[in-house]
């Protein structure tokens, strides 16, 4: 109930913002009958209507996990974000090993197994990516280059 109400209200806000930004689209003077704005308006309108229905007729609560699980998911998010940012400066091997070890630890908290898993996945995937598939991944990034 509550989740759907909050979700619906958020969607209403986003849909209104979407329609407002669609109104900002520049329209060239040589435009077709429909133009660049109509379809975004239509889509925003449909989203708005759906959101209203969701607010007025919410489903039952989805069964959220306990706070600790959210904490673990948040840590995983931070890890993945760090991996995404570190990939270019540090290369593939070290960030991938750290990230896989961290995710592995979050799922099954055994430090030794997690570290081994990280090293294993990182080096195995690098070998597959680099030598079997010929992807252009740098093993170590710029930091280690000079």
């Amino acid at each position: 109930m509550k989740t759907d109400r909050i979700f619906g209200l958020c969607v209403i806000g986003v849909a209104l913002a979407y329609i407002a930004s669609a109104a900002q689209i520049q329209v060239g003077f040589l435009s077709d009958p429909v133009g660049s704005r109509t379809f975004p308006y239509l889509v925003g309108g449909v989203a708005l209507a759906c959101a209203l229905v969701i607010v007025l007729r919410p489903d039952e609560e989805p069964g959220w996990p306990p706070l600790a699980t959210f904490g673990r998911i948040a840590i995983a998010l931070v890890v993945l974000y760090g991996f995404a940012v570190a990939l270019r400066p540090l290369g593939f091997l070290i960030p991938a090993a750290v990230a896989s070890a961290a995710i592995s630890y979050l799922i099954s908290p055994r430090p030794v197994a997690a570290v081994l898993c990280g090293i294993g996945i990182s080096s195995l995937l690098f070998a597959i990516f680099k030598f079997a598939l010929g992807l252009s991944l740098a093993p170590f990034g710029r930091l280690f280059a000079g």
Binding site: I107, S108, A114, C117, I121
Partner: peptide
């Protein structure tokens, strides 16, 4: 086991 599978999928 999932503790190998999931990091693998992510990477």
């Amino acid at each position: 086991p999932p503790w190998i599978l999931l990091p693998g999928i992510a990477m």
